[in-house]
């Protein structure tokens, strides 16, 4: 992952002192990747939008405490990907709010079966949220395994094994599609 760019450092400094244009520049630079990363982990547009929105709002609320010398991306992506994993885990563990009664609501709202616009997305959907997150962090956001380990609070070996296993499964499923 590239280091901190001079323009990003200026945007962060500006936003910390209350500059809306600087915040907007920071937002426009980071939103597309944050939203895409969330979507690739949760596979639900509305949820991805909420997750990325909340991550930005959370980042904005703590902007004053942010160390300007550090890059903004990893800080934001850490929030996004961890929330996306939590959301995907919760959805897998229906009922989501802990009661059978509330779980029924899900069935009513989400009737449509999942359809995927690309074979890669369909293959990704077969992986666990934890594996999807590692693949997305490595191959979409281009973080090194050591950086991913720090972001997800995992040993580096776990990241490497999840990455290897995720990619093997992905390759196998894409092979099966052909």
């Amino acid at each position: 992952m590239a280091g901190l760019r001079a323009d990003e450092r200026a945007w962060i400094a500006g936003a910390q002192t209350g500059s809306l244009p600087d915040l907007e520049a920071l937002f426009r630079d980071h939103w597309p990747r944050a939203y895409r990363a969330a979507y690739l982990v949760v596979h639900d547009g509305a949820a991805a939008e909420d997750i990325a929105q909340e991550a930005f709002i959370s980042a904005i609320r703590t902007l004053d405490r942010f160390d300007r010398r550090r890059p903004f991306g990893p800080w934001l992506h850490r929030i996004v990907v961890n929330r996306a994993i939590d959301w995907a885990r919760a959805r897998a563990l229906r009922p989501e709010v802990g009661e059978a009664a509330l779980g029924l609501a899900v069935a009513e709202v989400e009737q449509a079966p999942a359809t995927y616009s690309s074979p890669v997305l369909a293959a990704l959907a077969q992986l666990s949220p934890e594996h999807r997150a590692v693949v997305v962090l490595r191959h979409l956001l281009e973080y090194a395994p050591g950086e991913i380990a720090r972001m997800l609070d995992l040993p580096r070996g776990t990241v490497n094994s999840r990455l290897r296993r995720g990619l093997d499964e992905l390759a196998g499923r894409l092979e099966g599609e052909r």
Binding site: L20, L23, A52, F56
Partner: peptide, 13 residues
């Protein structure tokens, strides 16, 4: 999604 998120981010800011 970006437009909606920016509107919220601006409000939070």
């Amino acid at each position: 999604a970006q437009r909606r998120a920016w509107s919220l981010a601006r409000a939070a800011f």
